[in-house]
């Protein structure tokens, strides 16, 4: 029975994906893409990966959808020269061959599936974290996570470097062009506090149950954007030291803890004995703050020379 449900879910996702790739009006494709994202979230729950489901819905289709909606709202994009039907057929054929190759490989994966779960079970107690995914993220493969925060930072630098404002003083353009209406104001006043609470809870619970810095940070970013849209808080000028420190907090606090670990615990990104959980939580606080700020700024885009 559950397989039937999975099959229906899979077909839905595939149909939405084909709708996205098929073409047509940009806005409709973005909406279809957000549909794909939400359905993927459900599929991740079916795959017993709740952390990933949260990330997929919050970041994969939520904030990404928001950014893509902004792109779709722009002037109709100039398209490259029309591609002939023959090309479409050829591309379709190639796509099918890619699918066939991947399908064969997926079906031929070795039966006693090789997995690192036993290694994680053996090593997790040393970090006294409950949630194994957070353990992998922040302890066993801490370098990847550190790099990931650096990637976000560099993406932000890249987006900011596109602005005509050479010295990055002024603020990005407002998200909602029209003056905020009553309904939006009401929604923001009610929803933002609840959202913030959910975000903080999600970050806090991440140590032991599915959740974590990225998912919590994404929800907090969404709430911040909601507040700005409703005009409750002004869009910040990016020159401010406070904002920049918040952006730098995640990556460089993590880096600092990593280097401290070198002296205290013997290896880069290792955590001192007995204090693992507290240090990890501290690092997660910094990461959540900087992710929330960075995601919000990435959605807002480069500074447009408007005085904050």
């Amino acid at each position: 029975m559950s397989l039937l449900l999975d099959a229906i879910l899979a077909l839905l996702v595939l149909a939405a994906a084909v709708r996205v790739a098929a073409g047509g009006d940009g806005f409709a494709r973005v909406v279809a893409f957000m549909g794909v994202g939400l359905l993927l979230g459900l599929i991740w729950v079916r795959l017993a990966a709740v952390d990933v489901a949260l990330t997929e819905v919050a970041v994969g289709s939520g904030i990404t959808g928001l950014v893509l909606l902004q792109a779709a709202a722009d002037a109709p994009l100039t398209r490259e020269r029309e591609v002939g039907l023959l090309y479409h057929l050829c591309a379709g054929m190639v796509g099918l061959v890619v699918f066939a190759a991947l399908a064969v490989v997926v079906l031929l994966l070795p039966d006693p599936a090789p997995s690192l779960a036993p290694d994680v079970v053996r090593a997790l107690p040393a970090t006294d974290l409950g949630n194994p995914v957070t353990g992998v993220l922040l302890v066993f493969r801490a370098l990847d996570t550190l790099l990931e925060t650096m990637v976000l930072l560099v993406a932000l630098i890249g987006v900011w470097s596109l602005s005509p404002d050479r010295h990055w003083r002024r603020a990005p353009a407002p998200l909602w062009p029209a003056p905020p209406s009553g309904a939006l104001d009401f929604l923001a006043r009610v929803l933002v506090p609840i959202g913030a609470l959910v975000g903080i809870y999600m970050f806090w619970a991440g140590a032991d149950v599915p959740g974590g810095a990225f998912q919590g940070g994404a929800v907090l970013a969404a709430m911040a954007l909601m507040a700005m849209m409703a005009g409750l808080s002004p869009v910040p000028a990016i020159g401010g030291a406070g904002l920049r420190l918040a952006v730098l907090a995640g990556p460089f606090a993590f880096l600092g803890v990593g280097i401290a670990g070198w002296f205290l615990a013997g290896a880069f990104l290792d955590y001192p004995e007995g204090f693992e959980k507290t240090v990890i939580i501290a690092v997660e606080v910094a990461i959540t703050v900087s992710i929330a700020v960075t995601l919000a700024l990435l959605v807002l885009g480069p500074p447009m020379g408007r005085k904050a």
Partner: peptide
């Protein structure tokens, strides 16, 4: 060679 966080591959990097 050095291992991040002291964790050896295949678990560590």
């Amino acid at each position: 060679a050095s291992f991040i966080g002291g964790w050896r591959p295949p678990l560590g990097v």
